[in-house]
Design a protein around this nucleic acid. Structure first.
Lengths: 138, 138
DNA sequence: TATTGTTATACTCTATAACTATA
DNA sequence: TATAGTTATAGAGTATAACAATA
């Protein structure tokens, strides 16, 4: 741990993980994490169960179960796949879309409150750093 | 979403969560998340099951089970509490300490590889931003 | 014959309620 | 009587294996 870059890596990792944890814990929690994660992935476009299973790194039977719960809750709907009768497309219902929006907004609000304590200079520095972290993610 | 600070909040949140997720998914995973989380909390000092249950926001019976698994695996030990016969202290074994160290090191290595792609200036900016994020966490 | 999704079954993690030991 | 921890039991989530429908 004498390498300065390794120390920075450790620092970034711990801070990012702690922050992420706090957002999840202290934000809204009306849905289980895996349910919300699936719901959020349907925000931009409908997807098939197999598609979701791969994205969530879960087996197809597990996704079947998760999907069934969300369908029961009225948050998503199963519609026929236009080109392939074996597949089905999952799409957000109006309720489902509202839930996703509300949870995201709650989390953003939590973060917003924290950022409000920062000075203008700090906000600018943070904005710059996020661009760097995005690069790290790419 | 027209407030620039709200946009930054959203940006920070999404980036931090995605980064955190990648660290967990792509780093080592020889232990389940809840097991590793408990193990890591015993790094600096022994703790009681009740203490851990509260920290992990889990009920005492759940912690009993998690603890039992780690004891079975030889990663932690139960020792008597010096001042209160009702309580028990949990402490890392040598194996447990080694496992924690290895997993942490794997994750840091993952992050390190990413940071190596950054310029010296970017590294400095990132280091500064992490201090700001820590302030946000406080 | 291969692929998509589901059902059958078992294992793990979690929770609530009841129990034991100690304070 | 209250508290710390465990045991008993049940409810979700996930996995592997087997099955149905479609390509």
């Amino acid at each position: 741990m004498d390498d300065p870059l390794l120390r920075l890596a450790n620092d970034v990792r711990l801070t990012v993980q702690q922050l992420s944890r706090r957002v999840r814990f202290e934000g809204s929690s009306e849905l289980a994490p895996h349910q919300f994660s699936v719901l959020a992935k349907l925000w931009h476009e409908p997807r098939t169960p197999g598609d979701l299973a791969e994205l969530e790194r879960v087996t197809p039977p597990s996704m079947t179960r998760t999907v069934a719960g969300l369908v029961d809750g009225g948050l998503i709907e199963r519609i026929p796949h236009p080109g392939d009768g074996r597949q089905r497309l999952l799409t957000l219902t109006e309720d489902g879309r509202a839930v996703v929006q509300r949870i995201m907004r709650d989390r953003d609000d939590w973060m917003l409150k924290r950022l409000e304590t920062l000075s203008v200079v700090e906000r600018r520095e943070l904005a710059r750093a996020i661009e760097i972290l995005k690069k790290v993610l790419a």
